[in-house]
């Protein structure tokens, strides 16, 4: 049987897939992440490709491809990014609704995220909060708070110190009980037995770890994300390395966590969340203890993560300058509710 998608390295097939639509390309992306091929040296051969497939091919870093049935709309994408292409048959458009939905205004990253969402391959999970009221020591901190965040979306919650930002995150994580209201993470209600089983789907980056003095290496901190997973030592090491490389912190792996700079600690902590395979990232004042350079690097890393891994991200911060740099949707938390 002829494969839908085949990739060659030095004329030898290294990957093939028979699925339909864009799924073979997403599978190929996963394959390439786990192997150390130089994508520029590979030849991709696909049966059909439109604009959507072209965007994915370009984003993976291919420089040469052969397409059986090629849509004319794919050609500008290949030409813009210098991909050498050939085809058996050229058509004005292919019968695929996805191609019509990609507008010229969308850049490569936006298109990629859009396609991942459409393929249901977004790491993120939706979050829904309904009428949440939380009281601490008799004082009402959150009052009938409502919030909805789609899969792979990002939100920043701003607010002054003591406005309840951390309380909001801890409630979502199930660390603080709610007086009333419900929180859904995906289809699970926080506090239930099924949520408890999948608790690691929500990852938490808090401020307290900045002060940890315990002798623990950066790699050991990242491996905390794998706690409870029954995997071999070799697999554990591989997962840690992969996560640390994604946040450009692998060179710190043997260093003691408490000896790292603020920015390095945040990179390592983000790697921990990736290792955990968290689908909802909750970041509590991540720029505390960071200088301007580290803040900028963290923002760039978060933007990169939001595009590549596409987890749902909720950040609480009162750092207005940094929030502007991220340029994500922002809500203000005041008097116990979001506005």
């Amino acid at each position: 049987m002829e494969h839908s998608l085949v990739v060659y390295h030095n004329h030898l097939p290294i990957f093939s897939n028979d699925e339909h639509w864009l799924y073979p390309l997403f599978e190929l992306e996963t394959f390439l992440k786990n192997h150390s091929f130089l994508v520029g040296e590979l030849l991709l051969q696909d049966k059909i490709a439109g604009k959507a497939a072209a965007c994915l091919i370009v984003r993976m870093g291919f420089t040469q491809c052969h397409i059986g049935l090629l849509s004319r709309r794919a050609i500008p994408v290949f030409e813009k990014y210098g991909v050498r292409y050939s085809y058996d048959q050229l058509v004005d458009h292919i019968q695929c609704r996805t191609e019509d939905l990609i507008t010229d205004k969308m850049d490569l990253d936006e298109t990629y995220l859009f396609l991942r969402k459409r393929a249901g391959r977004v790491q993120g999970t939706p979050l829904k909060i309904e009428d949440l009221t939380v009281t601490i020591s008799g004082k009402q901190i959150l009052q009938n708070l409502n919030l909805e965040l789609g899969r792979g979306e990002q939100l920043i919650v701003m607010g002054e110190n003591g406005s309840g930002k951390t309380t909001l995150l801890k409630s979502i994580l199930g660390l603080l009980p709610a007086v009333s209201g419900k929180i859904w993470i995906g289809t699970e209600v926080v506090g239930t037995a099924t949520w408890q089983k999948n608790r690691a789907e929500s990852g938490y980056l808090n401020q307290e770890v900045a002060g940890v003095k315990f002798p623990i290496t950066a790699a050991e901190v990242v491996a905390i994300g794998l706690t409870g997973k029954k995997i071999s030592t070799a697999e554990r090491k591989y997962q840690v390395e992969l996560a640390m490389r994604k946040t450009r912190s692998f060179h710190l792996n043997t260093k003691l966590f408490h000896e790292l700079s603020g920015g390095e600690k945040q990179r390592v902590s983000l790697a921990r969340l990736l290792c955990q395979n968290a689908r909802l990232l909750l970041l509590d004042e991540p720029t505390s203890f960071l200088d301007d350079q580290a803040k900028r690097e963290l923002a760039e890393l978060l933007i990169e993560l939001s595009k590549n891994e596409a987890p749902t991200i909720l950040v609480v911060s009162h750092d207005k300058e940094w929030i502007q740099f991220l340029n994500w949707k922002t809500l203000n938390l005041a008097a116990g509710t979001l506005c």
Partner: peptide
């Protein structure tokens, strides 16, 4: 050892990692 390591690092993070 892994669960204890997570708890020693930070109790909240251990909880949210499923410990």
């Amino acid at each position: 050892r892994y669960q204890l390591r997570a708890i020693f690092f930070n109790a909240d993070i251990a909880s949210t990692s499923g410990v």
